[in-house]
């Protein structure tokens, strides 16, 4: 009982509970980062996606919007603005990290379990999210920071 790290909380087994992690265990870094990107992507997706899809692919077709925001001249003109480029970069990156993380756990729940399979899912789906986000970054800065 000499250690200052022992818990004084209710402990029915009267076993010492250490607040510090066991020695020798690898530090978990990637998992919380991916969950953080998933959560951030969830907010981006929820707030920004419906209006964007509505304006580009739904409303103009049915005449629900007076202009066509997806028309080439209109969209190309707006694309010159840094805010629009940042918007689409956040939209694409956030949605990819959110959706691929969600897909992984849907597939695991559907029965694709096991360390090997889950590792393969992690690699494939995170690769899609990372490459897609880098692709969005490339298009966002091309023509602005370089030709």
């Amino acid at each position: 009982m000499g250690s200052t790290r022992e818990s004084l909380a209710w402990n029915p087994g009267r076993e010492t509970v250490h607040a510090d992690e066991k020695t020798g265990e690898p530090e978990v870094f990637l998992e919380p980062l991916l969950w953080g990107l998933f959560s951030l992507g969830g907010f981006i997706t929820a707030f920004l996606f419906p209006i964007t899809v509505f304006l580009l692919f739904v409303a103009p077709v049915f005449g629900w919007w007076p202009t066509d925001p997806a028309a080439y001249a209109t969209f190309a003109a707006h694309w010159q603005e840094p805010l629009v480029r940042l918007f689409f970069f956040a939209l694409i990156g956030g949605s990819l990290f959110h959706g691929t993380h969600r897909l992984k756990f849907m597939l695991v729940d559907a029965g694709l379990r096991g360390p090997g399979i889950e590792a393969a899912l992690d690699i494939i789906l995170n690769a899609i999210a990372i490459v897609g986000t880098l692709g969005a970054l490339y298009y966002a800065v091309r023509g602005w920071l370089f030709v």
């Binding site: 580009l56 080439y72 949605s95 959706g99």
Partner: peptide, 29 residues
């Protein structure tokens, strides 16, 4: 959950939109 996965699908669609924008008016249209 399915809606979350759909958002990733739209992410890829928007990525392709930017690719076609770069490719020119005919590809984009």
């Amino acid at each position: 959950e399915l809606g979350g996965v759909v958002s990733a699908l739209y992410g890829l669609i928007f990525l392709n939109l930017l690719r076609t924008l770069r490719a020119g008016e005919s590809a984009y249209t």
